[in-house]
Design a protein around this nucleic acid. Sequence first.
DNA 1: AAAAAAATCGCAAACGTTTGCGTATTTAAA
DNA 2: TTTAAATACGCAAACGTTTGCGATTTTTTT
Lengths: 340, 340
Amino acid sequence: MSNGISLKELAAELNLAPSTVSRALNDSYEISEATKKKVVSMAEKLNYQPNPFARSLRENKSKTIAVIIPERINNFFAQVMDGIEEVTHEHGFHLLVYSTHEDVEKEKKIVSLLQNRRADAIVMSVSSQTSDVSHLTKLYERELPIIFFDRICSEIPTTKFITNDYESAFQGTKHLIQQGCKKIAFLMLSKELSITKERHRGYLDALNEAGLAPEPTFSMHCCLNEEENIQSITQLLKSQNRPDGILSSVEKLAIATYHAVRKTDLRIPDDLKIITFSNMSSAGLLSPSLSTITQPALTIGQECAKLLIKKLTKPKHTDLIDQTIVIPSQITIRESTLVR
Amino acid sequence: MSNGISLKELAAELNLAPSTVSRALNDSYEISEATKKKVVSMAEKLNYQPNPFARSLRENKSKTIAVIIPERINNFFAQVMDGIEEVTHEHGFHLLVYSTHEDVEKEKKIVSLLQNRRADAIVMSVSSQTSDVSHLTKLYERELPIIFFDRICSEIPTTKFITNDYESAFQGTKHLIQQGCKKIAFLMLSKELSITKERHRGYLDALNEAGLAPEPTFSMHCCLNEEENIQSITQLLKSQNRPDGILSSVEKLAIATYHAVRKTDLRIPDDLKIITFSNMSSAGLLSPSLSTITQPALTIGQECAKLLIKKLTKPKHTDLIDQTIVIPSQITIRESTLVR
DNA sequence: AAAAAAATCGCAAACGTTTGCGTATTTAAA
DNA sequence: TTTAAATACGCAAACGTTTGCGATTTTTTT
């Protein structure tokens, strides 16, 4: 009883045609209630499990959705995944998950693997290295339903889900200003990323509104190596004209800043205030506790999944129109931006 | 050019039989180098992508591995996933990922979905609610290769990967004792879990070795609701005969303890020391920084994947023998267990 | 130069489903 | 009672691969 029983064998056992059994199990109107009962009970008795590949081959769909994220060790993406799984699982869909580790080459390879429709649809957040998007347009041209979240790809005319990046960054730096910061730095990963562009805009506009001149060297873009980031942030903090406030566009860089601060004699929030985009659950337990801009990650995941499910179950009635849906973040003020 | 080209169409384009094209693409010795070149270049030109379901149907394997974890928002499991993906991806395998959210009913449902061999193999860590394992034995009887890590299921005779739970717990409580703790509590999730059994043994033996009598009420098993846990831990800390040291068997409960402590006038490590099993990356940034027993999560994931890949690529030469492979954890002492 | 061996390719079946269509039986309408 | 319609089921094709086996051509051996 290793490999289970097939539809044919089940049919033979019942002295019925495979087609009849298939229809019975799929609750077709062409089959009498009596035989339906028989079939179903026999199927249960023999623990019949339909072969998913035969079905996928025949129906040209796999009830599978692929998710591509830039990193896994990050609460934000983990929460988004939970949101996606919550609604896809409800509809019997499976999840193929891939992490690019912020590597665009790996992203290309993964995307290439998905061209054969192993998954019915894709939801993704692009890597920080991604600037050329030809591999993504190829997917789109293959008519593979694809949607983006967080780090979106504006070149592809599809639906995207993001948080209010501009507004949140604006409010975040405004908060720093209100707390007395005069020289505010902005930490970012790649400047190609949609989120850094938007968040940087918000940062600049907030400075502008307050009449603060943006210092070019304060818009600092970091790399993927934590040690290097700690080094360069340390250097920034030890410089003559050091910032007294920081808006970090990603959690990783706020953590790096915490480490960097420990290499100086500065103290948060006395000498330096910091607020960051982050979904870290232990932000309130850090020393000092960290003010955060928290994305509605679970909701983003849920909404992505809902839309995709709708697209896959009612293809005629739903389009993945080219629009960006914004779900606002929540700002939580903690010790790291207090006035002392 | 929506759905791509099939092998037949590619063959027609080349005036060759599908079988020839198939063999050419699979680099068969039966095909001349000349036609191989032709076929490959035409395949590339037309961007031929083999249908994975046809292949899976025919070959009865999908190059897919399913991973079942109890929760996603947890660095340990995320790191294990990264380890698994690193080696599976290298061998062209795909990953179906499922989270049970510590819910055994969800676990049963997922396991049931996998009976049809949608995945070639399974690697899992059981939910904390899991005591009846009939759904897992059913998988095993179906001859579905399955291995466990961390929270293992001893009833299934297969290979398991764990850390040195007993030894680490022993060393952890021994450390607490050396730091002066006399009344040490042990926080756990379900007592059914393999990891709580082993870690609890280590805890008890360490107490025993030091001549400390184990207080029954100090072996506290918590639930899945964080608020409730904070409440009960708070109560424990406010009780007459409160502990002065805590060994937490999972990260979640250490975090709950940090929250609970803030509801009292106790201070860590002055009044209470704590060490926990945890792979949290920001343990060193907490207030106070948290002493941890860190599992080799990435390695565990890699080893799981290596073994499974070996089993799937050389089925005759490898057995998933009933053994438990132990990879030691690393203890990092931080402020939360300092003597003051 | 004839026979044997090797190289190269095509035919057709098989994997396990679903579904259009045809057919036989039963029920309802005339 | 005859005819029409509805019900219930089976046949066979199709999805896109891989592969055993046979057939033809080319090369090697004797």
